[in-house]
Each structure stands twice: as C-alpha cells, then as structure tokens.
Computed example of a mutant assay.
Amino acid sequence: MTSPKKIGLYFGTFNPIHVGHLTIANYMVEFSDLDEVWIVVTPHNPHKKKKTLLEDIHRLTMVRIALEDYPKLKASNIEFDLPQPNYTVNTLAHLEEKYPESSFCLIMGEDNLKSFHKWKNYEVILERYELYIYPRISEGTIESKFTKHPKIHKVNAPIMELSSTFIRKAIKDGKNIRPMLSQNVWEYLDEMNFYKA
C-alpha cells in the first residue's frame, strides 16, 4: 500500500505572488519530506473593503502562471467557495474530506507561529496536523509550548525579506521591480496596469 501524498499548504493573499514566495514554496518541497506544496490563495473578505487587494481571480491567475514551470507546486482556490469569514481549521477539514488519500500540513513563517496561540482552534490544528515553519525576521517570541513540539518542524529555508506591500508601492512609484517577479507574472501585471494607480 502506498503512503498518502504529503501536501504542504502555503496560505496567503499573494497580492502579487513574488520570487520570495516561490523560493520558500520550492525550498519546502525540495528540502523537506513534502511531496507537493499547494499555494492557497485567500479570498477577499467581503466584510473588509481593501482597495489594494486585487480581485480573487487575478491573484489566482498570477499564482497559476508563476507555477507553470514547477510541477510540485500547485495553485489552490479551495477557500473561494467556503463561507466567509473562514478559518484555517475549517479549510483543513474541508480538504481532508475532499482528498482523503492525501495528508495535509501547514507551512507558515516564524512570525505567524508567534501568534499561533490566537488562531481559532489552534489546539485542534496541532493535534491533527504538522506545521512546517520557515524563518522570518520579526519581533516577539515563540511560546515555549511551540518550541519543542513534536508536530512543529523548523525548515532552514532562506530568509526572504521581500513583501507584496513593498512591490505594490514600488510599482505605484514607477520603479522597475522585474527581478522580484516571475517574468510571466510581471508581464500580466504590466498588461493589466495593476497597482499603478
């Protein structure tokens, strides 16, 4: 009997997806025991009007085109059809039901681990799923109960200090940020005139 496929879930708004996201996702799939990484695009929360957030379909399209050359990385819109506001614990339960032959894990930055105790049903998540943590430079400390937890694995991925916020501002300011994005993502953004106004 084959063991279930181990899939890491990397959540985010990806507004836009950049080389930092790709580097971390690819590092996770190549240098850990994960078989695939799914980039899960978080939908726009209808209760929060965020002007800088592109429509769901555009962010998903950019993720899809960014991953074209990475067969172990997949774009996921699983949260688009779930009721809002949604919580990670619900998404995990939904995925488990939909893909019973796979085993799911969470990928998160060290900064998120510092506030993980505030997540809805975080104990349930830890009981049932493994966490793969990549390093981030951030303030605050990790709760001691998380530092040596058997289900929390620190992965020594490169520290990426690149943010989508920085990229959006740079585009608005007319800067050339082409090296920070996949070529096809840059072309799509440019053609659609995103973030320029």
Rank of each mutant, 00 (worst) to 15 (best):
I152G: 10
S163Y: 12
P150M: 02
L126V: 06
Y134V: 12
I125H: 04
N156Q: 09
I107F: 04
L181A: 07
F166L: 08
L106W: 03
H149M: 09
P179D: 00
E130H: 11
E187R: 15
M108P: 08
V185F: 05
N112K: 12
F166S: 00
Y134C: 13
I177C: 06
I177R: 10
N176Y: 08
L181I: 04
W119I: 03
S164L: 07
Y129R: 07
I159A: 05
N112F: 15
I133D: 03
K114L: 07
L189V: 14
I152W: 02
Y129T: 00
Y132M: 15
E187T: 14
Y122I: 05
R136P: 05
M108E: 01
L131Y: 09
Q183L: 15
V185W: 06
D111V: 03
M108F: 12
L189E: 09
L131D: 01
K175F: 14
P179T: 00
S138D: 14
Q183C: 13
E161H: 13
A170Q: 09
K175Q: 03
H153D: 02
D190K: 15
W119C: 01
N112L: 15
K120S: 06
S138H: 11
N176D: 13
I133P: 04
W119N: 00
H149N: 02
Y122D: 00
R168T: 10
K169S: 05
D190L: 11
Y188Q: 06
L181F: 12
L189C: 11
S138P: 03
D111M: 04
A170C: 10
K120Q: 09
P135N: 04
S144C: 01
I171H: 07
L113E: 01
S115Q: 13
K148F: 08
K114N: 05
M160F: 14
T165E: 09
N112W: 13
E191F: 15
Y134M: 14
G174D: 00
I177L: 08
A157L: 07
G140T: 08
V185S: 11
Y122L: 04
R178K: 15
L126Q: 04
S138C: 11
E143M: 10
L189P: 04
I133Q: 06
K151G: 01
K114P: 05
Y129N: 02
K169P: 02
